[in-house]
Design a protein around this nucleic acid. Sequence first.
DNA 1: TAATACTATACTATTTTTGTCTACATTGAA
DNA 2: TTCAATGTAGACAAAAATAGTATAGTATTA
Lengths: 137, 137
Amino acid sequence: MKLNQATDYAIRSVLHLSGLPFGQVMEAKLIAEEENIPMRFLLKIMRLLTQAGIVESYRGVNGGYALARNPSEITLLDVVEAIEGPIAINRCLIAPEYCSKKFSEHCPVHEALFKLQQSMVEHLKQYNFQMLRERMK
Amino acid sequence: MKLNQATDYAIRSVLHLSGLPFGQVMEAKLIAEEENIPMRFLLKIMRLLTQAGIVESYRGVNGGYALARNPSEITLLDVVEAIEGPIAINRCLIAPEYCSKKFSEHCPVHEALFKLQQSMVEHLKQYNFQMLRERMK
DNA sequence: TAATACTATACTATTTTTGTCTACATTGAA
DNA sequence: TTCAATGTAGACAAAAATAGTATAGTATTA
């Protein structure tokens, strides 16, 4: 029931980029140093953020990463899902073959966990990076 | 961001016991069969539930497990925490040395994740096993 | 064309999860 | 009293997930 380390790094990286003027490019090496993230690992994480459309990457000299959208348009949920995939607190919620009841009868556990999951999604959706950035001051 | 398999088994086992007349003892072998849980693994899980005061164990002939309290007095949170320990969605929430900000400044990520965690705890606390049992019908 | 910076992907080490096994303690019944 | 049933305790092991590294390659720009 934990976010993994990569997600933590991703959140902090996006938060870092959110502090720059919009569109400004920052290279991975610098982000890694300032946020204390292993450089190679960060590159891997940034690729996921790029694929998810959260950041844009620029190669070559003066390359690096910049936000692809305004911080107010990026939520914690966006970043969490970019790294970990869709939130699923129990495998029975995505893979029916793991539900011990196999739909043979109504499963209240399934129902309760699904509601918890929904509530988590809504919660994570509420926070965008402009908000988070403002709260740093 | 997932509950683990042991927790899933634990929830289903407690739910199963909640369907019996209060105080009735059921042996692990039977629970394992009916809920499709590896027997040895279940024994280990039941030990955690026993230590948490959720079930009572009886050894010897005709031994087994019975609920230690009324199903209405056992919440999903009780069972989740009995197996996984206190909910902590980010290690920075329990181990400050992992917080990249190390309290040197206000960390909005820490704050947002803490609120999410609180919300999850409250959510899990809302469900007791009498409710869950009733919803099976 | 050479240096810089990201991409892609394979590899590895560590940790966590999911079990299993062996030895033992308790209980009840023959 | 002894034996079979049942849980306890903790070591062990296999598999999966996590965290991180390495190697080779691509795009960019000075």
